[in-house]
């Protein structure tokens, strides 16, 4: 992974005219943003009664995620701190209303009017202190308390985020819990470092979380719940533990037939778990070529 934009400059400076245009003209980024917002909407689990809702897009940027909301027939209000990104959104004629606003200053919205909120790759910016007056803890608090206030009862908020480390994830989660939200983190593709995506799913009010929501996606569409994740951590833990007591490294047998079919199958399974595209296992897998080649 390249350098993180958060570490380069504050958002309103990093996303200048050139960077904003680059961001929105890259088909790869557009595709990723669309699939992330699609998934965020799915996690938002709005009631399926075909009534358009009023949603909030926090850190809407050039409106890539907003477009997904419009496609699903909802109205949205987007806010972002970068004027250049908002200008691109204007050029793209997005359907939602745009606000130039800093989420760390709190959202200036009336209580209880918003039906749900999504935010794609934005909240981690709050963890940076870009000015002497910034205090990440206070800014997170201002953001989450004002968000809690403006959401209607039972509404959800879904944030896709790239926390830099465990401490940052904890900081964000604690701020959300202190503001009164319930919920937790859903991890999609937990085995793959490339495709791994984290969503912070928060619910407002007493409504219990739908259990199907807390299931992350994996390559074969088989869900891993948070609980499974814990089990896995334990497993990893035991692996690490037994590592220390492992017998001295045995030299790999290197016969002329290569490493063998079993080894190949094991490696392929491993790559599949990481979310890579791997050819199917067939009777030809691990077979030697004929001599005439």
């Amino acid at each position: 992974m390249g350098s993180r934009p958060e570490l380069v400059a504050p958002p309103e400076i990093f996303y200048d005219d050139t960077e904003a245009r680059k961001y929105t003209s890259s088909s790869r980024i557009i595709e990723i943003q669309a699939s992330l917002s699609e998934r965020a909407l799915e996690l938002l689990a709005l009631p399926e009664d075909d009534v358009p809702k009023l949603l909030l897009d926090i850190g809407c940027g050039s409106g890539l995620s907003g477009e997904t909301i419009s496609e699903n027939g909802h109205h949205w209000i987007g806010l972002d701190i970068s004027p250049s990104m908002l200008n691109i959104a204007l050029e793209r004629e997005v359907e939602g209303d745009l606000l130039l606003s800093d989420m760390g200053q709190g959202l200036g919205l009336r209580p209880g009017v918003i039906d749900g909120a999504i935010s794609i790759s934005a909240v981690q910016w709050l963890c940076n202190a870009d000015r002497s007056s910034h205090n990440p803890r206070l800014r997170l608090k201002a953001f989450f308390t004002s968000l809690y206030k403006c959401l209607s009862s039972g509404a959800k908020a879904v944030f896709q985020l790239y926390p830099q480390n465990v401490a940052q994830r904890e900081l964000i989660l604690n701020a959300a819990m202190n503001a009164g939200f319930g919920g937790g983190i859903v991890v999609d593709f937990p085995h793959s470092s490339k495709k791994r995506k984290e969503f912070l799913v928060l619910a407002c009010g007493q409504q219990s979380m739908n259990s199907s929501l807390t299931i992350g996606k994996t390559e074969d569409e088989k869900g891993f719940s948070d609980h499974d994740d814990e089990d896995e951590d334990e497993e990893n833990h035991t692996v690490c533990f037994s590592d220390r007591h492992r017998r001295p490294f045995k030299k790999q047998k290197n016969n002329k037939n290569g490493k063998g079919r079993e080894w190949i199958l094991r490696k392929k399974e491993q790559m599949r778990r990481r979310g890579n595209d791997v050819p199917l296992d067939t009777k030809y897998t691990g077979r030697k070529r004929k001599g005439r080649f």
Binding site: D97, L99, G108, L109, R110, V113, I114
Partner: peptide, 21 residues
């Protein structure tokens, strides 16, 4: 900006009690 958004917005300057409308 539509009036839909205007109706949701309020001023959140520190110390302001009623920033709406």
């Amino acid at each position: 900006m539509r009036l839909l958004t205007h109706n949701m917005l309020s001023s959140n300057i520190r110390g302001v009690v009623n920033g709406f409308p």
